[in-house]
Design a protein around this nucleic acid. Structure first.
Lengths: 351, 351
DNA sequence: GGTATAAGAACGCCCCATAGA
DNA sequence: ATCTATGGGGCGTTCTTATAC
């Protein structure tokens, strides 16, 4: 900027008043302004955002602390964040880590060293229920805008997440609308394990509650079938779910015509097991999943699922960060999933 | 830092000499040093990286310009970059975009406005073969360390990528080692279409060449079977490949015992089509893929494939950026894929 | 003369107090 | 009084030069 001033034979104050978008009480004659702009273009001047932040005590950076477990959602989350942040001259500093709180803590420190104006975090959770709650609380005190996404684990930190209860409810209502009455909820054994701290498997509990409410409202008896828990969710679910298919047909209220599975992996394992037993889907039984992962599978009917608006979560989280930076109050947001109807669910048999 | 100086009753020069890791010709008495450190810890002082960069004319940031088409690899790429960058006090500013050169150009500008010290890019390519080559060349002139990964499209910009030729060769050699002799290469019709600019489908051409070389070296006659091209690669490949299965058994040198498919989608489509025709895999025919996507398929034998060391690409790209920043010379790197042997390939029938 | 400490300039931008026409 | 323009101090580091003992 000083170079431009020298080149154009004016003061740097004039250059600043011309090139900065901010209104200032500095007047610049149209002709001077023109000259400055032409010189700036010739030298193709671009402001240094870091230096700008020096006085404003801002970096125009937002840190993203991302857990591996949310791999499927990470890229869409980033896209959503970007949609909003780039428009406001902010950029995203990405830190990916495994699911350990130590990594998250380290990356949070890196972010703070960068003087980020905000942090978006998928909070990490230790096996023993430990989080980095205090560190985030401290960061927030220091005027770093914090937002947690997906998991709601950090008390006092604004949250954008999924409405898991709605997922269970909408899936059930979809099947009810197709005429199904004997609808089973298929989930893992920890869905309401009171041995564990309440923060664990909250999503499973909520999806189940959504299912249960929809069933009760329809005057029907809820029935839950569980399979063995797996250590780390994901593809492992497929095999475990597959081997638990027979449990659907055991017990008093057997012969379900539809299954609301806890997530897409389970649903996929289920589809697989059903087809292997010669049970037609959706001819004899309908299946729905949750998460909208669109697992690439060959030879299975495409899965009806509830897809999370991940990019929208990102957009909301970004807005929340910006609002906090501007000192506005923010409120937690839960986003409902979108029902994606495919071949795995259909009308009740015989209808 | 000035605050610490005031608090400790010393000059900020002394504080700097104590806290900065650099050696300086400023002497600080042991006792003074101790006091300074204790005060710094009490105020838990952290240096402002942006301010540090002001004098050094560095931002300690590296931009990442990421194409959507490489979705499968993006996260591992980021991890690899991080592995190296974080160790050297650099952070990653992520910009995801669709596959348009305009988006890339815009995000490159954003990066430069941030005064990034380097840029890692998965270069975008227009339908008409256009790239942002000039912009990157200009950036490089301005001492921004540029590295292109995966695609090699920007002349003069250092590159880290996949050794596609090795993929074709290793797959073929794997099958040769199992005793196969009638090995076919299955790819799309554009693999050596000279109508198109040479930058398109370079990977297909190279994989084919690897296959061909391995066959010739073994004294065997190469044979290529193609299927119709698809507009945008990915899952579409599966169906198209599936419907082209019969072509494997047409023509003079028919009855292959093994197929080297261009990529995992094709291989998956192939597996599917073969099984539908009652042809056993790998009993009658072996199939290999390339890319290491580990597609979830049900009822299909798990695919033998050549997995790319994506994270290693990231690590190398990061090192290349750092080397360039330090003024060192860098050389292009091609990384060979790792053979992952699964159930879709086995010994030649009758062996 | 050698050593410990202080002072201050520079980086690039923001913006104010001031001053000339 | 109005319009236009200027120079300088500050942000938080780095690091050189000057000063005190």
């Amino acid at each position: 900027m000083a170079d431009i001033a020298k080149e154009a034979g004016v003061s740097k104050g004039a250059v600043w008043a011309t090139l900065s978008k901010r209104v200032s009480n500095i007047g610049v004659a149209a002709e001077t302004r023109k000259k400055i702009i032409s010189v700036a273009e010739r030298m193709d001047y671009r402001p240094d955002i870091a230096a700008r932040g020096l006085t404003a005590r801002k970096s125009y950076l937002v840190g993203l602390l991302c857990r591996e477990a949310y791999e499927f959602f990470s890229l869409d989350l980033i896209r959503g964040l970007q949609d909003v942040l780039l428009e406001h001259e902010y950029s995203l500093v990405a830190y990916l880590h495994g699911d350990k709180v130590e990594d998250e803590s380290r990356h949070l420190r890196f972010s703070l060293d960068r003087q980020v104006d905000g942090v978006v975090v998928i909070p990490a959770l230790d096996m023993d229920g430990r989080t980095n709650a205090e560190q985030f609380a401290k960061s927030q005190e220091r005027k770093v805008a914090c937002v947690q996404v997906f998991n709601h684990l950090l008390p006092g930190i604004p949250h954008v997440g999924f409405d898991n209860e709605a997922a269970g409810r909408i899936a059930t209502e979809h099947l009810l609308a197709q005429g199904h009455r004997r609808i089973v909820h298929f989930t893992h054994a920890h869905y309401r394990n009171s041995q564990l701290p309440v923060v664990f498997h909250l999503d499973a509990r909520q999806r189940w509650q959504g299912y249960e409410r929809a069933m009760i409202q329809a005057g029907l008896l809820p029935r839950v079938v569980t399979h063995d828990p797996v250590d780390c969710g994901g593809p492992e679910f497929i095999e475990v779910a597959k081997s638990a298919v027979d449990r659907l047909f055991e017990g008093a209220e057997a012969n379900p015509t539809a299954v609301v599975a806890y997530n897409d992996y389970e649903a996929t394992g289920l589809l697989c097991g059903l087809l292997e037993r010669g049970i037609s889907v959706p001819g004899e039984i309908s299946v729905t999943g949750v998460d909208g992962l669109f697992l690439q599978s060959v030879g299975l009917p495409e899965l009806t699922t509830l897809a999370w608006p991940v990019r929208e979560v990102g957009r909301n989280a970004a807005r929340m960060v910006l609002d906090q930076i501007e000192g506005k109050d923010v409120e937690n947001i839960l986003l409902a999933p979108n029902l994606k109807t495919f071949a795995s669910s259909g009308p009740v048999p015989g209808a």
